[in-house]
């Protein structure tokens, strides 16, 4: 998988780069408008992470450029402006997702995964991971052949973990993913624990190993390896 990060903050690009590298994504970086344009013209990418405010031009113009060039890569817009107008404009110009700063890298990874899945595996909506099989189309999860019945939140949580597997994900990031803006309303995050406990129990009841490891104080880690495709 090849990604292009168009973002003028070098240190942010570096973090995104090193985080995504662990998920086996190859990342390319562009720090200003012209560089982004050039890289888009000369290389093919699977997904593009695009900042709207760039030195030398607007990310929205780059989107238009990509539309003209018929670039098929999925685009995630990252913007400091949480404005509905920007969001609508970005999505209308061909962006696939919109993420407001400050975001969790785990959230960005989940979104990148979901876009790549949508773009690349057309018709193939099944994730196979160790013993687990997730059918994205009818939203079912199986362990071997046994179906695991999950609630909406548990399913969402499992997908999030799969996107960020072998990675430590903080409670805050999980809460924000599951409850979106309601998570920032300032409750204690303890109730996430209930959902994680339930998911873990359901997986283990159907014969899965204990994938979800709690790391004291930090968060959780989903440890599993992708089943090689036959």
């Amino acid at each position: 998988m090849k990604l292009l990060i168009i973002e003028d903050e070098q240190s942010l690009t570096k973090s995104i780069h090193s985080y995504l590298l662990q998920s086996n994504f190859l990342c390319d970086a562009a720090y200003h408008y012209e560089e982004g344009k050039e890289k888009l013209d000369t290389n093919a990418y699977d997904c593009i992470i695009l900042d709207i405010t760039l030195p030398g031009g607007s990310g929205l113009d780059l989107l238009q450029h990509m539309k003209r060039r018929k670039v098929t890569a999925g685009v995630i817009i990252i913007s400091a402006r949480n404005s509905l107008d920007d969001k609508i404009a970005g999505l209308e110009l061909g962006g696939d997702d919109y993420l407001t700063k400050p975001f969790h890298l785990a959230e960005l990874t989940a979104r990148v995964n979901s876009i790549i899945r949508r773009k690349q595996f057309e018709g193939n909506n099944i994730i196979a991971l160790d013993k687990l099989t997730v059918n994205m189309l009818d939203k079912t999860v199986k362990s071997g052949t046994d179906e695991i019945h999950l609630t909406k939140k548990e399913y969402k949580l499992l997908l999030y973990f799969i996107s960020n597997r072998n990675r430590i994900v903080t409670k805050e990031a999980i809460a924000e993913h599951l409850w979106e803006e309601q998570a920032s309303l300032g409750y204690s995050l303890d109730f996430i624990y209930t959902h994680i406990k339930n998911l873990r129990k359901k997986l283990m009841d159907k014969g899965c190993p204990d994938y979800i490891k709690a790391l004291y104080g930090m968060g959780y880690k989903f440890a599993a390896d992708e089943t090689p495709r036959a």
Binding site: L12, S15, S18, Y19, P102, F103, H104, L105, T170, G219
Partner: peptide, 11 residues
Amino acid sequence: TIIRSKLDVLI
């Protein structure tokens, strides 16, 4: 975002 991403990488 930078602080948060650095922490994400650090942990």
